[in-house]
Structure formats: C-alpha cells, structure tokens
C-alpha cells in the first residue's frame, strides 16, 4: 500500500504492507529513535506525536496516516537535548531504551499542562514504563525542567 503523509515536516510517500503498524514503518524508514517494548500498547516506548499529540505508534496502523503529521524525536533535537540535560543530570536515563518515547511524552506534556503539578505529571506520564530508574529521578528532572513549584 502507499499513502502520503508528513514526517518531521517533510511530505513523504510511504510504501507499506497492509496491517503494518506505524512504529514498524517509521523504523523501516530510518527513524530509529522509535523503540518497541511490548506488543500490547502498555509501555509507552513507541510514543511519537500524531498531529502534535503523543500517540503509541505500535498500535497505530500506518494505513490511517494519510494526510497526518507525524513527529519523532529526531525533529526535536534542540528541545530534546535541553530536556536530556536535566534527565542525565539526575542519572535517570539509565539504559535509555525507554527514553526517546518518554521524552516525547514529556515534551508534549510541557505544551499541554498549563500549571503542572507532581500529581498531574505522574498522571500524564502513567503510560510510560521504566524498569531501571524507579521513576523518582525522572520526576526530579521534570520538576527542574518545568520549574514546578
């Protein structure tokens, strides 16, 4: 199958098999920041933005991407690096495998939550699992990054 969509600001024509999920398509096209950690939409590793909203690309059919705008962390290098500096200052990235999907959710959250609190941040990020960090260092980084009082 073929369709036209926008990835990181570029209009592209995607060639894909029926039934292929967006995470697979994106990795096949070289957007290797997109990771997969489960087969059940549970872990958040595959998070990209679909029309600006954080979306699980592992459970989004590529066939539905006609005319949409997809953003991966490759397009947000400056912003991602800014957040990354807070995260690594806490040592909280650890193995890093969940980090790009997690960062995509955090950057979306920054746009969406007007006055973030620890509670609302935890709620927003509940779908992003991490087995290394224990989450507390991630929260310390986010609180500093967003300037949460």
């Amino acid at each position: 199958m073929q369709l036209e969509t926008t990835i990181n600001g570029n209009t592209v024509t995607l060639d894909f098999a029926a039934g292929e999920f967006l995470s697979e398509t994106l990795r096949r096209y070289g957007y290797l920041s997109v990771k997969e950690g489960c087969d059940t939409g549970s872990c958040g590793l595959c998070t990209v933005w679909l029309d600006g909203k954080p979306t699980l690309s592992c459970s989004t059919l590529t066939a539905r991407m006609q005319g949409h705008e997809i953003t991966t962390i490759e397009a947000l290098a400056g912003e991602a690096e800014e957040f990354a500096r807070f995260l690594v200052a806490e040592g909280a990235e650890q193995c890093g495998f969940c980090a790009p999907g997690f960062a995509m959710t955090v950057l979306a959250m920054k746009r969406e939550l007007k006055e973030p609190t620890v509670t609302s941040i935890n709620h927003y990020l509940a779908g992003n699992l991490c087995r290394c960090s224990g989450y507390k260092g991630q929260m310390r980084a986010i609180v500093k990054y967003l300037g949460v009082k």
Partner: peptide, 9 residues
Amino acid sequence: GIGLVKGTP
C-alpha cells in the same frame, strides 16, 4: 546519556 535520550541509534 544525552545521545540515548535523543534517540541516537
């Protein structure tokens, strides 16, 4: 760390 968070292969 920075590279991993930014999704560097």
